[in-house]
Write a protein that binds this DNA or RNA. Structure first.
Lengths: 140, 140
DNA sequence: TTTCTAATTGCGAAACCTTCGCAATTAGCC
DNA sequence: GGCTAATTGCGAAGGTTTCGCAATTAGAAA
């Protein structure tokens, strides 16, 4: 029961097969903190294992999402972006002047989301919050 | 300066042309409160004007978004969904057991979003919040 | 080690949503 | 009515994602 198990370790425990392609893809995801989309993952994984194909990347991303090991994000553009799921959920702030993505977490905000859901008779299962912002200093 | 101007009235004021197709599309949007996607709008608009084409729908949706008259939403699936923009912004709660979309607004939540953005040195320009929920009574 | 089987892969094709190019039409203005 | 630029329909093309199928391979069993 390691504190931080790697994706591959968790796949193995779950009975998934550990292929070289899957290993490369997981390594890429663990080493990327920039919310890469499928094509990004593909390009980076090819450097680790030249046999990785694009459809293999898509299949593994889907597999990992289904396993609950990574999350698919919708950050405004038409492509899905991915990140390894961490124990602490968080939201995203998109810098409209640079495209940078800032991760944040706010307990008060989390509580309020649940409270609002409850007010309407619901129990919060999941959520997506993206804040699109400009730097304070910017004029636009 | 009518309280509630129709989309077509606002298009005319802005100098846009009022075609039968555009009128049908705007009528559909104004009569739909279920956040239709492009194909939905197309099917409904065809009933009002059989000459409406799918590309015309896409072009007009884009046009209306650019004009700030409607909003494009990302509610989890891969398609854009649309709604007439109202004076009061709001967020969305998705009922995972039925797929229903509940609109809500919470001033405290709005203020907190701005506060969080500010904490990171940003000014909130826009945001997307979707709460995925189950009814309180549901077991899952 | 060898064998077996189901999971996984590569490839290309296809599906899906959306945009585009271009010639034809049309709304709004003179 | 006639002019002009905006708008349209059509089909093609674009971009992202999925799928079908035969070939490969990881992991288990012998």
């Amino acid at each position: 029961m390691t504190q931080t198990q790697s994706l591959i370790e968790r796949i193995r425990e779950a009975g998934g097969k550990v292929t070289t392609q899957r290993t490369a893809i997981c390594t890429v995801l663990e080493q990327s903190d920039d919310h890469p989309h499928a094509e990004d993952v593909f390009q980076r994984a090819k450097l680790l294992d030249s046999t990785v194909s694009l459809s293999c990347v898509y299949r593994n991303l889907k597999y990992l999402v289904d396993q609950g090991l990574i999350d698919a994000l919708d950050l405004g553009d038409s492509k899905h972006r991915y990140e390894v799921r961490r124990t602490t959920p968080h939201d995203h702030l998109i810098d409209l002047s640079t495209g940078d993505v800032v991760e944040f977490r706010d307990a008060e905000l989390d509580a309020l989301k649940r409270k609002v859901a409850s007010r309407y008779g619901y129990r919060l299962k999941d959520h997506r919050l993206a804040l699109f912002c400009y730097p304070k200093s910017a004029t636009t």
